[in-house]
Design a protein around this nucleic acid. Structure first.
Lengths: 162, 162
DNA sequence: GTACGAGTTCCAGCACACTGGAAGGTCAAG
DNA sequence: CTTGACCTTCCAGTGTGCTGGAACTCGTAC
């Protein structure tokens, strides 16, 4: 199976597949006499797994760790469980943050609705954003991993294999 | 006021201040005879505004637009209102996505808790992540702007001015 | 005069997951 | 033999907001 067919079958662009190979996420397949990559059918499964794991919010680095455990013949259950728990944790924290941001934005929108632009000209820069109740910034306690934006299907894949 | 004092007063590192200047967010201040930047007190306000706007989820590009409207002597109220509305929208959508992700992760965590690793060895790659009920990926309809991770206070600022 | 902190410029890199494009090779059909 | 789809490698760029470091100057204290 050539890379193009695999791309179509797995809904992952050929470029991305090569990129994954380079990152060690999928093993280098054998080549045809002409130098073309020749994938076994299992490659589809592997790519699907990668997509699923990304859907669970994991980075390629996480996924690479899981896959290498698996490639060593062990069941990666405990690693996977740990990663899931970690991500759940991050998602929870992010949700908390985002909810706070939403509250802040709603307050701002409300304030903006009742503003007189002429009065505003006198003010500092913007009376909407710099109000009396200063908007304190979350200031992210432990940086940790910033939690990928979960923008998976954007751009490349939907656009087609090219 | 030198850049160091401004950094301290505004809680924005000197490096970052120069970076903002280079990005056009703060006007190049006059220089001392020795070539040092010499800031007026208003610079503190401006930096605070930038931080506040970031806290509302705006990118530096957004903030730059607001500031340039302001610098032209107009009240940026309508621009600001529009931006706020846009961000609110994005935050809402992101919250929906994240909530879905959380649900997915919870299901995964639950599944992981009742897995037999030995059974898993036989399976494809990981029975937790690749289950019968395939985890469909959000597939982000309109990409739009990915909504900055709102990780404002990480690393640089808390660490100090350096 | 010399040490030191704080300033200057400029270039590079991080993290993340790709994507674009150039320049060329392979293979089947016509 | 040529066309064209498909493949190859490699390098560079995207976006976001900085941060690090090198190499140098300024200003003040001792």
């Amino acid at each position: 199976m050539q890379i193009g067919s695999l791309a179509e079958a797995s809904d992952v662009s050929a470029k991305t597949i090569r990129f994954y190979e380079q990152r060690g996420l999928i093993p280098p397949p054998p080549r045809t006499s002409g130098g073309y990559r020749d994938y076994p059918a299992e490659a589809i499964q592997r790519l699907r797994f990668i997509r699923d794991a990304q859907g669970a919010g994991m980075t390629l680095a996480d996924i690479g760790r899981i896959l290498s455990v698996r490639d060593n013949g062990q069941a990666p259950c405990s690693e996977v469980s740990t990663l899931i728990a970690e991500h759940l944790d991050q998602v929870e924290r992010r949700l908390t943050e985002l909810t706070a941001t939403r509250t802040r934005l709603r307050r701002l929108a409300h304030r903006a609705a009742g503003i007189d632009p002429d009065a505003c000209v006198e003010a500092d820069i913007c009376t909407i954003l710099v109000g009396r109740d200063r908007l304190t910034v979350p200031s992210a306690g432990t940086p940790g991993r910033p939690l990928p934006p979960t923008t998976i299907g954007r751009g490349g894949v939907e656009g087609g294999i090219s």
